[in-house]
Amino acid sequence: MWTWFHKLASPPHFYRLAGLIGPWLLWPSLLLLAVGTYGGLVLAPADYQQGDGFRIIYVHVPSAYLSTTIYAVLAVASAIGLIWRIKLAHAVAAAAAPIGASFTAVALISGALWGKPMWGTYWEWDPRLTSELILLFIYFGYMSLRASFEDLNQADRASGLLAVIGVVNLPIIHYSGMWWSSLHQGPSLKTLDAPSISGDMLWPLLLLIAASTLFFGALLLSRVRAEVLDREQNSRWIQDLFGDSAGAG
C-alpha cells in the first residue's frame, strides 16, 4: 500500500498516469453533462409550485456541490502536504483552487437568478448565502496568498495553513439552514432519507452531479500535471521528456 502510494506520488509516475486517465474522465463527463442538461431542460416536468423556474436547480445544485466538495479536496490535500511534506499534495491543492472558485461563483450567481423570481430578491444576508460568499472569498484569499510568495515552499506552507483553517466554513455552509432560521430551503437530497424530489426530476440532477464530479477530476488532473511540470523543471525526467523536441541548442 505504501510503496504503491509513494510510487503514485512520485512526479514522473503521476505525470504519465494522469495524462493517460485525463481524457477518460473528460469525454464521459461531457457526454453525461449533455444528457443531464437535456433531461433537466426537456424531459423533466415543470414543478407544481415553481413551474419551469425550478430548472435552475440543474445548474445551481451541481455547482454548489462542486464548490464545497472541491474545497474539501483542497483542504485535505493541504493537510497531507503540511504533515507529510508531500509536494504533490500541495500541487493538488493549488490546482483545485481556481476550479473551485469558478464554480462557487456560478453557485452564487445561479442562486441569485433563482432567488429573484421565487423568493423575490437576488440577495439576502442569510446565513447560507453569506457563508457561501465567504467560501468564495476564502478561495480568492488562498490564490492571492499563493501568488504573493516568490518561494514555492513558503507559498505551499502559508496557503496550506489558510486552507486548513478555512475548512471551518464548510460545516457552517452545510448546517446553516439547520442551526439558524434561513431563507434557503432544506436539502432535497439527503444521505439517509428519501429525496424530496420526484424521480423524473431527480435522475437528471444525479446525472449532472456525477458529470460535474468527473469533469472536476479531469480538470484537476490536467492542472496538477501543469503544476508538476513547473515544479520539476530542472529534474532529469523532464529533460528526458522535453529535451529532444527542442533539439540540440
Partner: peptide
C-alpha cells in the same frame, strides 16, 4: 416593508402534487 417567499425542498410535477 418587504415580503420574501420561502419555498420548501419538495419538487414534483403538478399532477403528482394533485
Amino acid at each position: 416593508e418587504e415580503v420574501l417567499a420561502k419555498h420548501d425542498e419538495n419538487y414534483m410535477a403538478p399532477e403528482v402534487a394533485e
